[in-house]
Every structure is written in structure tokens, then in C-alpha cells.
Write a protein that binds this DNA or RNA. Structure first.
Lengths: 254, 254
DNA sequence: CCATCTTTGTGCACGCGTTCACAAAGACAT
DNA sequence: ATGTCTTTGTGAACGCGTGCACAAAGATGG
């Protein structure tokens, strides 16, 4: 750990820019919606609008995948769905384990967006013996003691961590040791992983803080807006000193 | 609803780059942890390691806020905590409403990371009459009919959407009409909002799809191994880029 | 077959973000 | 004071991502 030096030299995965990869799921969702409405073809302009991006960007993104469009017509929806799915690896089955079955873990287990895209919740794991055996989203919760066996028996390579912050690194280490090479982390902690292991982080409070920053800026500049005093919240008198409020937020209080 | 402009206006918010703003919460968390351990000062190198970023990047980030460090010593932890909190607008109270109290909404309501950073869940809102009146995380759920009144009475400017995809746009429109100017969207949909409203998106399935892409690539490059290709990929020393600092992505602004 | 129209695919330029490398600044010891 | 040591703050170079603008490619109609 302590990745002191040699950071990633280039972030191009097989010639496809990382930024493009991050948008492919967006296109895929829009295309899937079109497919369900039996729309045969779509132009870059239309699809871009549906995905909320610039049409030039979309065309460039697709150009990295190959030339799948027809000039003067657009893109074949079904064909493009297949190509993007294949590129993202969604044509195969990805068994996933969720560790930490609190409120968030349960929400994830129930989330329908997984199964519809090749992800299969292979197991739910929690350290609380009281949960063991109970079913969440129709899947029985298993105890952390069996983590390694579960990973290996199911050939799991993607793990989701939804534990409290304090347990995240330990769980991460065990997942990696057992063979997991991709981790989606919901715990508010920086995880250390060896090279070759991908970690993506989702942090609910960080997103809100970024919004707060912009919100504060908007409120501050609103003093000059022509529009009458908006009903927007007035900057309340600060008072709550940072205080040592239990910062370490447990993702779930069991 | 002409164009779904959900991407940031690329406006250098008060001279502070967007990328820097996105990292400030990361620094803040690391600093808070140091503060609780009564560490008086910290060097850019140490703090960068704790936050999982490059030290040069961290110093440049702080340089946008001003010169808060002492050469030869480092940064005063308490002072920096205050400066970043103030910059992010966390020294004031931010009432927030959560719309859609399903599994995810409940998880968010219970999430401890909000209250500890100036965010206060002012209300929970759901369209299901069966939920109305029931308490989740100690907060009574109110009906969607009262959405506008709740927003205005509480001076809410930040809304969290955790509804099914089909209801998201409608909820969004009502929130915006009632005065909300920042939205955190968990529904898998592209929201259309007028200028001046910020939207940040968190999409669980998109993150997994991005991981799957890299996972597939790793597996594909390992095909050279004599093994017939078992489903379980072995963590192997490989030049898998994508450094340890998994930045958000999609959310990126998504 | 030719003209015209539509839409893709991409060369190019620009700006943002990242990283390096080092001078400036302060602490500390002598 | 002076020198040495540590660490910040930043100028500059570089690479990536984005968006413009247009030529190429194919459809379509006469």
C-alpha cells in the first residue's frame, strides 16, 4: 500500500478513454428505453438529448467503439445496445456480493437496476449474527466468517461494501485476499488496495457538500439578482461549531 | 424543458476549480479525523496520503483557498477544518428534504453522515398514503400533496430524489417550482431543470457497469494464462491503471 | 445516374486539470 | 546571525477531454 510513487501513467483502457467508459452506461440506458418503444434507429442528436450530453461528444464516444452508425440515417438501436453491452461486459453474468446489510445494504439488495444489467446478487454478508439466516430481498444473509468461501464458491470478482467506515478496510482486505478485484465502496473511507484492484467510491455526504458549496455561492450572489427576494433559505446564523460530533458516520446502524 | 442541461456551467465558482471543490470534502474528512485525535498540524504529504490523493494536487487545491500553511511545518488542522467548512458552506444549517421513502430513501434518512456536516433532514416525503404519518429515522413521513408547503415552511433549497425513475422528473419539477435550487438525484433518469438549478446524480448501476468494464478487460488480458478461464479472476500483478484514487465519477456530475 | 439532403466520423484547437520541479519562506540549531 | 533543513506555494509543461466545424458517406428523389 502507500502507493508512494508511480501513479497511473495513462488512464486509457484499451484505447477507450475513461470519460467515455463512464458515459457508456448512460447511452445504454437511453438506448434501452428506445428499444422498449421499438424505435428502430436514432440520430446522434436525439440520443444525445436523451442521455443529456452533447451530440459531438456522443459521436466521438461511439467512434472509439467503431463505426456503428449509418450516415444520413443514424444508429441502429438494437445493434448499438448489443455493442455497448458487449463492450461493458454486460453480456456475461457478474456475481456480486454485498457486505454490510444495514439500511443501505438492504436498499442495494432490493435495487432492480442490477439484475437487469447482468449483475446477480450472489450473496449478502453481515457481521451481525442476529441477521444471519434472515432473508433480505429474498436472499439469505450469511455471516462474515464464511466470506472467503462464499467468494470462491461463487466465483465473485466484484464486491460491494456497505459497512460502517470502521469495518470497511478490513472487509476490503478480506475480499481482495479472497479474489475480488473490483470494489464498489459506500463507506466514507479511503480504501488501500494492491495494484490490479479497482475501487470506485460513492459517498452520499460528499455529493451533498458539493451541492452546498454551489448553493452557498448562489445565495451569496443573489443579493444582486433583479428578481425579488427569493423564498430561498436565508443563510442562517452559523452557530454549530464544528464540534466533535461523532463524525465517523456509520453507513448503517444495523 | 427545452434542453436538459444537467451538466455544470463550467463556471469557475469564485476562482475555485470544480475539481478542487469535489475534493474539499475528502480533505475535510481526513482533517476531522486528525482533529479528533488532537493532531495539531499536518504536512501536505501526510494529509494527501490520508485523503488518497497526490500531495502536489492537495497543495494546489489549498492554494486556491489562500495560504493557510506554514512552510517548514505544515497546516494547522483546526484552522484548515474551519476554512474548508466555511468554503463549502457547512458552517450554516442546510435543511434537506428526501422524496421517495423506499429502501434507499430510508437508508438516506438514517445516514449519519448528513447531520454531522450541517445537513438536517427537514422532512421525508412519499406519495404512498400508507406511509404517511409513519416515522422513519424518527422523522414522520409526509404526503406528496404537501410538498410545496413543506419546502417553503422550512426554507429548503436542497432536495434529494429517491423515487422510482418514472416519478423523478415530476417530483423534480415540483421541487424546483417550490424553490429548491439544488438536487441530488438517485433515480436513474436524466432530469431537466432550468438554468440556475444544480443537479448531481448518483447512479448505483452505472458505477457497477464501469467496474464491469475494467473487470472484463482484466479477465481478457489474463486469457493468456494456461487456465481454461475460470469465472473467478485471480488478483494478479498487472499493469491495471486506474490509480487508487477512484474519483467519483459519474457523479461526476453526472 | 446525378443532384441534393441528412447525418456520421474526425481533424483541430482550446481550456482544464494534473504533475513536476524548484524557489521562497519559515523553523530550528549552532 | 547564519546556515541548514523542512515544507509550502506556484510557474510551467503536458496530457486529456470537449466542442467546433466540415468533409466524407450514404440515403433519397427525380
Amino acid at each position: 500500500m502507500a502507493t508512494g510513487r508511480t501513479h497511473r501513467p495513462a488512464t486509457r483502457s484499451r484505447g477507450i478513454p475513461e470519460a467515455t467508459v463512464a458515459r457508456l452506461p448512460l447511452y445504454l440506458r437511453a438506448l434501452t428505453a428506445l428499444s422498449e418503444r421499438s424505435v428502430p434507429t436514432v440520430s446522434s442528436e436525439e440520443l444525445a438529448a436523451a442521455a443529456g450530453v452533447n451530440s459531438a461528444k456522443l459521436r466521438k464516444d461511439f467512434s472509439y467503439l467503431g463505426s456503428y452508425g449509418t450516415r444520413g440515417v443514424g444508429y441502429d438501436v438494437e445493434y448499438l445496445v448489443y455493442q455497448i453491452s458487449r463492450e461493458l461486459g454486460l453480456t456475461q453474468d457478474w456475481p456480486v456480493v454485498i457486505v454490510g446489510i444495514g439500511n443501505l445494504g438492504a436498499a442495494l439488495a432490493n435495487y432492480g437496476g442490477f439484475a437487469s444489467r447482468g449483475f446477480r446478487v450472489a450473496a449478502l454478508i453481515d457481521a451481525d449474527p442476529a441477521l444471519t439466516g434472515r432473508a433480505v430481498a429474498g436472499i439469505p444473509v450469511q455471516h462474515t466468517d464464511d466470506l472467503e468461501k462464499i467468494i470462491q464458491d461463487n466465483g465473485v470478482s466484484i464486491g460491494v461494501i456497505a459497512t460502517p467506515a470502521g469495518a470497511a478496510q478490513q472487509v476490503c482486505d478480506r475480499l481482495v485476499a479472497a479474489g475480488v478485484t473490483s470494489i464498489l465502496n459506500f463507506a466514507p473511507t479511503v480504501l488501500s488496495v494492491p495494484d490490479g484492484v479497482d475501487v470506485r467510491k460513492v459517498d452520499l455526504s460528499i455529493e451533498l457538500q458539493i451541492l452546498a458549496f454551489h448553493e452557498q455561492r448562489k445565495a451569496g450572489e443573489e443579493a444582486a439578482t433583479p428578481d425579488g427576494g427569493g423564498p430561498a433559505a436565508v443563510a442562517r446564523k452559523e452557530s454549530a461549531d464544528k464540534g466533535p460530533d461523532g463524525d465517523v458516520p456509520a453507513v448503517m446502524p444495523a
